[in-house]
């Protein structure tokens, strides 16, 4: 059989399209089959305004997180990488009462990924590089992320950072137990899933000397977080967006 160049190119294109189509179909099918029903924990965190000592310069939660997760100390502020950071009450809760006791609201609050019940970031991710686990943790796969930053546009909490350059030279002390990231990917708080897997509490919770951070399972009625949410008024950021945040601020 003699092929002209045109026929060869057409056949090659058709074959490639066929391979791509088959692969797509099988992946979509696998995704559809993936259903779970087991009762699993729903991890959440509560931050106690009254105990937090940020006004006195305590920064222990941020430091513990930075050390545990190889967070680079990027000199250029606009390219900053942060998993936990602080903001003033009035920028975190602009829609809430500004007349609360200044002792509680005048110092900055701790911010982190809210590990939403219906996360907008995982919905928009075109590769499944960020997804929600059954226990509610919103995860990142730094090997799959293509760096399109759609998740950053979709996050209503400003929780995601992008590695605008290789972060490794800016890491003060590399923790060999946790992966470092490459340039061009998005990263954020992972609720210390690597520690939870070993039965430990998140690094920020361990680091807080004032016990202002309460971490636990919302599905367990006997957990400390459930008890504290029963008895105290708790605020959630941008609740009206329907994201179901798992981070609570206790007044």
């Amino acid at each position: 059989m003699k092929l002209t160049r045109k026929e060869f190119l057409l056949t090659a294109a058709a074959t490639l399209a066929g391979i791509a189509g088959t692969k797509t179909l099988s992946t979509v099918k696998a995704a559809a089959d993936d259903s779970t029903g087991a009762s699993t924990p729903r991890w959440a965190m509560a931050i106690d305004f009254q105990k937090c000592r940020w006004d006195q310069g305590c920064n222990q939660c941020v430091q513990s997180c930075n050390e545990a997760h190889n967070i680079p100390d990027v000199p250029q502020k606009s390219h900053e990488v942060k998993w936990i950071w602080k903001e003033q009450y009035k920028s975190v809760f602009p829609q809430q009462s500004q007349w609360i006791d200044p002792a509680l609201t005048s110092h900055p609050l701790m911010l982190l990924c809210n590990h939403c019940g219906t996360p907008p970031c995982t919905r928009v991710c075109p590769t499944g590089a960020t997804w929600k686990r059954d226990d509610g943790i919103v995860m990142m796969d730094w090997h799959r992320c293509i760096g399109c930053r759609y998740c950053m546009a979709a996050c209503p909490y400003d929780s995601r950072s992008f590695d605008f350059a290789d972060p490794r030279p800016d890491i003060v002390n590399i923790n060999p137990a946790f992966p470092t990231r490459t340039k061009g990917v998005v990263e954020k708080c992972n609720f210390c899933e690597e520690r939870l897997g070993k039965g430990q509490r998140p690094a920020c919770v361990e680091g807080c000397r004032e016990h202002a951070l309460i971490f636990g399972d919302l599905n367990d009625p006997a957990s400390q977080i459930r008890s504290v949410l029963r008895s105290r008024y708790a605020m959630q950021r941008n609740q009206e967006l329907g994201t179901g945040p798992a981070v609570f601020y206790l007044l």
Partner: peptide, 10 residues
């Protein structure tokens, strides 16, 4: 990866 891990929800 957009083709290898198609995400119809995106």
């Amino acid at each position: 990866n957009v083709l290898l891990f198609p995400a119809p929800h995106s």
